[in-house]
Nucleic acid binder design. Structure first.
Length: 597
RNA sequence: GGCCCCAUAGUUCAAUGGAUAGAACGGAAGUUUCCUAAACUUUAAAUCCAAGUUCGAUUCUUGGUGGGGCUACCA
């Protein structure tokens, strides 16, 4: 039983014994004592005054005395206003630390009785242009959330849904046909996704020119957009694609393969992966059948022109199109199909979509539709909606060339790490290969941490020049702390081959040391919270706080140089447990930690 | 117009309804015969406004203000 629960039960017992009342356990508030007060756990007594019918101080004192008498681990207590601060003895914390040392995956839930099967969909790129900063947030969030959920004992399946069909794909294809001169990624010496992206941009430029020309001739902008020859050609190409025209399909396959190869490299560099990849070109027709059945059931309505709609006005929304008049599917149709498919494929209990908040409405609608169709899993569809990544100048706009490319950004970060370590002379003695490895770890660590430390639902500003730092609340700060601990361990081993796997519990620990142990103590609940709220930011901030606290400890506590051997061993042991947790927490964020830096 | 999200130091981020709102960057001033100074110490600086619920509100409710998003036979 956790100490919090023990305390709570004792308080309930005390209230019954002393005031003769059974109270709602909800009204017992046990929380961690704030740092600037003496104590480990605090009972807020204000809600209990009705029962005790005594002033706060007196109530708190009476409960405190009862608890001290009845729980051995409580060594003392103090009362400040309506707060009862309880202190646990050294022995409790040191024994606890020993127990952490025994565990391999401290904080994880290993054998959950009924693990849920959770699908996490993330990334979901379009195959017409390379990945950018927005995708990076998406990928990092999805990957981390998947790991965090898995740490709590559930079975997680990571899936990607590649958007590989549609008018936007045809635009790149058409531009390549017209202006590509048969170029390939090999000939151009360029990643395939970037090459295809160039043609997407080219299309847009030429399209714009045509629109301007038409406007000059006195045609309205709206008409010009619809009638520019290029867009008509692109639409024609889409029709050919849907009709399975051989040359169109051929080109489509080739260009898509270029892009996908490029994505693979980006994913690999980012350090993320998937268990299953769905292609929209395979799944886009799945939903149509379900929608047609829905009409029979009377869930959807068919208009005179043949288009199919769902009426969500009763739910406070509008009508939403599900099938076009010509019978073709739209975006949400496909999602209806894939949701059905996935629950069937994996017997899933829950499906989490990591998708930007501009699609909040889309997922609200999707959930309602699945519900109307009678799918019981509709309540287990969860949209992990994250905020936009903005630049200091505002939103990224591909047309204005202000998009921050994913590959470039990673390169830049690694390069910055390289310059920093060169400047500091940190890696001078290491081999070229080691330097590359370490700089990579640090550069990517900085990027990933910077993005993941922010609450997912919030918009965030990303300043490519200034925002990424290697000091303060950053990935490298945490990595550095880890490297120091590894270094300590190695030195200890060199001096003395015995590494402690247990410490004495009768040592007097300093406040800072106790503070660190308490932070370790809260790791499991941090992981639980992060998993419940799907927020890697909680883990990120926890690891930072731990590292910060450790650095302070490191600064003014001799460890290997401590003369008292028992204390020295204790500090080393404590350091190692903290190293373990830093590694564990960073791993859940998808961030590597270096052995040295 | 309708719906959703956000608002905290100059900047970027924290805070299950609890005590004196925490960090970091930037600013100012310091620490190295000592286990990695990518570290540590000191310092100034903030809850958008107004009501309400509560013993207690940054947190919950309502209304305003400001910012963002969605509201396509696009994805």
């Amino acid at each position: 039983m956790s100490i919090e629960l023990q305390l709570k039960n004792k308080v309930l017992e005390a209230l019954q014994q002393m005031y003769g009342q059974v109270v709602d356990p909800e009204s017992i508030q046990i929380q961690k004592t704030r740092k600037d007060f003496v104590g480990d756990y605090t009972l807020v007594v204000f809600p209990l005054l009705k029962i005790s019918k005594k002033p706060p101080e007196q109530t708190a004192t009476e409960i405190g005395e009862y608890i001290k008498k009845n729980i051995d681990d409580i060594s003392e207590f103090n009362v400040i206003k309506g707060f009862l601060n309880l202190t646990l003895n050294n022995n409790f914390w040191l024994s606890f630390l020993n127990s952490v040392g025994q565990k391999k995956d401290y904080g994880y839930i290993i054998n959950k009785e009924k693990p849920n099967i959770v699908l996490v969909e993330y990334s979901s790129p379009n195959t017409n242009k390379p990945l950018h900063l927005g995708h990076i947030r998406n990928n990092l969030l999805g990957y981390s959330v998947a790991k965090i959920i898995a740490s709590q004992g559930d079975k997680v399946i990571k899936v990607n849904l590649v958007n590989d069909r549609g008018i936007h794909i045809c635009k790149s294809m058409l531009a390549w046909q017209k202006w590509g001169n048969g170029i390939t990624p090999e000939k151009a010496g360029k990643k395939g996704d970037h090459l295809v992206g160039d043609f997407y941009v080219k299309f847009d430029q030429e399209y714009k020119k045509q629109i301007d020309e038409l406007i000059q001739k006195g045609i309205s902008e709206e008409e010009a957009k619809k009638n520019a020859p290029l867009i008509i050609e692109a639409q024609e190409m889409l029709r050919k694609w849907e009709a399975k025209d051989e040359t169109t399909i051929g080109l489509w396959k080739e260009m898509n393969s270029w892009v996908l190869k490029g994505f693979d490299i980006t994913y690999k560099n980012l350090g993320i992966d998937f268990d299953k990849i769905y292609f929209e070109s395979d799944t886009y027709k799945l939903g149509k059948e379900i929608v047609l059945k829905g009409i029979e059931k009377g869930v959807f309505l068919k208009k005179d022109d043949g288009s199919v709609w769902v009426d969500l006005t009763e739910e406070g929304l509008d009508q939403k199109l599900l099938l076009r008049a010509d019978g073709t599917s739209v975006y949400i149709t496909q999602d209806i199909g894939t949701a059905h498919q996935r629950f069937a494929d994996f017997n899933a209990d829950e499906l989490i979509y990591v998708v930007g908040n501009e699609q909040n409405y889309h997922f609200q609608v999707l959930k309602l539709i699945m519900n109307k169709l009678g799918y019981s899993f509709s309540e287990y569809l969860f949209h992990l909606s994250y905020g936009m990544v903005e630049l200091p100048e505002g939103k990224m706009k591909s047309r204005e060339g202000t998009v921050v490319d994913a590959d470039d950004l990673m390169d830049e970060m690694i390069h910055t790490a390289e310059e920093m370590s060169k400047e500091l002379g940190k890696l001078d003695e290491y081999s070229e290969a080691e330097r590359i490895q370490i700089n990579r770890t640090i550069g990517l660590g900085a990027l990933k941490y910077f993005i993941l430390k922010v609450d997912p639902k919030k918009n965030m500003t990303f300043d490519p020049k200034e925002s990424i730092d290697f000091n303060g609340n950053t990935g490298p700060f945490i990595q550095y702390t880890y490297a120091r601990i590894v270094s300590l361990t190695k030195k200890a081993q060199a001096r003395n081959s015995i590494t402690p796997n247990k410490i004495k519990t009768d040592i007097t620990a300093t406040n800072k040391e106790l503070q660190l142990i308490k932070q370790i103590h809260s790791y499991p609940e941090i992981l639980f919270d992060a998993s419940e709220t799907l927020s890697p930011a909680i883990v990120a901030n926890f690891v930072y706080d731990l590292a910060k606290e450790y650095n302070q400890f490191y600064h003014d506590h001799p460890i290997l140089n401590e003369v008292d051997e028992n204390i020295s061993l204790f500090r080393l042991f404590l350091s190692q447990q903290i190293g373990k947790i830093i590694q564990s927490g960073m791993n859940l964020l998808g961030i590597d930690v270096p052995e040295r830096m």
